[in-house]
Design a binder for these strands. Sequence first.
DNA 1: TTTTCCAATCGTACTTTTACGATTGGAAAT
DNA 2: ATTTCCAATCGTAAAAGTACGATTGGAAAA
Lengths: 101, 101
Amino acid sequence: MKKETENSIHKNDSKQLARFAKALGHPTRIAILKHLESQSCCFTGDLVEIFPLAQSTISQHLKELKNAGLIQGEVNPPKIKYCINKENWKTAKGLFQGFFE
Amino acid sequence: MKKETENSIHKNDSKQLARFAKALGHPTRIAILKHLESQSCCFTGDLVEIFPLAQSTISQHLKELKNAGLIQGEVNPPKIKYCINKENWKTAKGLFQGFFE
DNA sequence: TTTTCCAATCGTACTTTTACGATTGGAAAT
DNA sequence: ATTTCCAATCGTAAAAGTACGATTGGAAAA
């Protein structure tokens, strides 16, 4: 059983919140997420067409969003379909809400 | 008079949201803001005592938060009192709320 | 099997961020 | 006038972020 002070819980929350915030800290990633919210899902190629960025750059941004847990990809050969990770999205929403009161 | 398409407004929002998110994208800055929320205001020196970081590092984080518009400092010689910038805080809150729906 | 297609990864260059100690600046106190 | 005090800024070093073109990998199609 894990023993945690209230303080360390807050610290963990701060870390997690910062992690999410960092992932949101680039206009392209915000735009990608907005697109995913509106479309529910999309392929990497769709984004490459929308944004004036190289395919490798888009891929890198997707990787960061995935690492932060905000999106998830499922293979749908030969394409990969990206969606919002609803669980973590909810967590992020809650953390930001709590932060701003 | 400025002519803006709905699209460009959304783009601007994305940029602003990313700017705020980037400023929130570090655990120390989250912790500073949480402290300011709870204390309403504080001095740089207070933070230097709380965080295991050099005074110059704290100062840098404060600068970033100030540049992002999330805090403001008023001189109270020889100290400087930092507070949340309530207007921009509200803006940020609104942007995040809108983003997460 | 070979080709085709999509996306990840590699290698690279450049910029930005994070952290530190040292120095500077400005106002109050001596 | 000098000292003291707090915080900003400078200079620097190391790490992380952003972007690109080129290459690789893996699955489907030919």
